[in-house]
Design a protein around this nucleic acid. Sequence first.
DNA 1: TCACACCCTGCAACTAGTTGCATAGCGGTC
DNA 2: GACCGCTATGCAACTAGTTGCAGGGTGTGA
Lengths: 191, 191
Amino acid sequence: MALEHAILVSLSERAASGSELTRRFDASIGFFWTATHQQIYRVLGRMETDGWITVEAVPQADRPTKKVYAVADAGLAELRRWMAEPTVPDPVRNSLGVKMRGASLGDRATLLDDLRRHLDEHTKRLSLYEFMQNRDFPDPGALSGAALDIYLVLRGGLLMEEFWIRWLTEYLDAHTAAHTAAPATEPQENR
Amino acid sequence: MALEHAILVSLSERAASGSELTRRFDASIGFFWTATHQQIYRVLGRMETDGWITVEAVPQADRPTKKVYAVADAGLAELRRWMAEPTVPDPVRNSLGVKMRGASLGDRATLLDDLRRHLDEHTKRLSLYEFMQNRDFPDPGALSGAALDIYLVLRGGLLMEEFWIRWLTEYLDAHTAAHTAAPATEPQENR
DNA sequence: TCACACCCTGCAACTAGTTGCATAGCGGTC
DNA sequence: GACCGCTATGCAACTAGTTGCAGGGTGTGA
């Protein structure tokens, strides 16, 4: 439902082609919405026929011509309408939680390795977001309007990474420090 | 992809009918996966024909007969297979993030009200999870095996609510305490 | 110049998830 | 006994998202 609106927000910040949007969805927008290029192209086509966005073919030196999209009046109106309606909670998708809960039915060591890999990924991503925060927003107190919003959304990405790191660390600690119901190896370690 | 596996995990903890599973998905499982009853019934049917689960009709006094499902050998094998494979990141869906980022294009006051409503919901849910933690796991250090996993997944739900509360509070503070690019109504309220 | 890699666009077929509605049993009640 | 409400199950049609593949343009190197 909100892919169209995520695209509208992104295009309103700066007009873009399908592949540029795809790159944005792999980066900054990726924090709150993910989408593949096929889906983006399809939705762009629909939005264009609905008059939400306008197209302009832009030839490029050194690479194929791209189709640059910009928000039309009807698109902005739709975005405003959507933003004013009450937000319903998004569907939750958390495979790691499912695996954690069922861990005693499978091979726990394999799962722990997988979780360590994810912890590593999230740690790296947190570092990246902290770097971006320091580079792009050295003085957050001075921000307002759209720039403040962009900063606060980055903050959300950062806090989300902290959530993952906390959770994964707590799970790993509880299952490596402690005994657990594993074979009869000596229990008793940290708390 | 993982709805089947979430159902398998839940059924392995205790056999259940479609409507009992639906209630679980509205409660505990809802933290890491959401699903409607229609989807659950359809997937249960498919899993049954695939031999992952077995059915037994159980007549009830005072209410209609229910069909109770239990995990079959093939289902457990499939669950083990899935749990051992590397977990790919789940798709992200965060409408509030989209709205925050586009807030300067719409009516900010309306959005702030919406965010306050969500903050209130998350605060209530955090209280509920804390209550459950204290009631069901008074001594986490003594847990192991499946019980420890259930505790740690509840911890994940709790940490997730804390994430939301932090983010929403930070956004609201930044946009109420400060000036922002709003009309010239008197700023200065709570920090 | 031919093969190859990469960019940008897009189609087609499939799977997952949503929305709206239907049926049937049981209990209460007007 | 007609009606209402609740539980439990499920179908049908639609929308959203994924997977696999492809074609044309452009530059690079053998």
